[in-house]
Amino acid sequence: MIDERRLISVLQKGLPLITHPYAAIASEINSTEDEVINYIQLMQEKGDIKRFGLVVRHRKLGYKSNAMVVWDIPEKSVDALGQCFGQFDFVTLSYRRPRNLPDWPYNLFCMIHGQDRDDVKKNLSLMIKSCQVEGVNHELLFSTRCFKQRGAIYIHCHEDENKSERVEL
């Protein structure tokens, strides 16, 4: 029997870049290549694994600026607007989240990208115009620093927290 917890934790570190990666993982967890392959396929079918592949850093590819834009949208319009915002190339995340009233009225969160801050703002204007949300209460939150786990290393922000983002080159 395959030790699922160990497989999940070993895979979390990333797939080894060698000819037979699944065989290497199998030997690490005292399993067989077949078992590892079958189990990963099963996790993918069940949706436990959202995606199996690679994640790129926008920043390295020229998208140097990004921001979180949050909106205060009436519940009945959230579906339509969440989808409307999601259609733009520069939007990599569109989530409904709970409001924290009274001082946080926002319930729809998008991550948007651009070459620089002005470009991000331009993209936001485009969203507002195209989805006809002029007058809707919103805020744009640029990130300035980010700290990674382990030692609070001080690094530039990549906003790659969303592991299911994709970028087309």
């Binding site: 999940i8 895979l11 979390q12 570190k13 990333g14 797939l15 870049l17 990963i40 996790m43 069940k46 949706g47 436990d48 694994i49 959202k50 995606r51 199996f52 592949g53 690679l54 994640v55 790129v56 850093r57 390295k60 590819l61 990549h158 790659d160 592991k163 299911s164």
Partner: peptide, 17 residues
């Protein structure tokens, strides 16, 4: 190694897991 790729492997669905 250049940091273009931040991850290579599974993206788990935390809630489903």
């Amino acid at each position: 190694s250049e940091g273009v790729i931040s991850r290579f492997g599974p993206m788990y669905h935390a809630e489903k897991m």
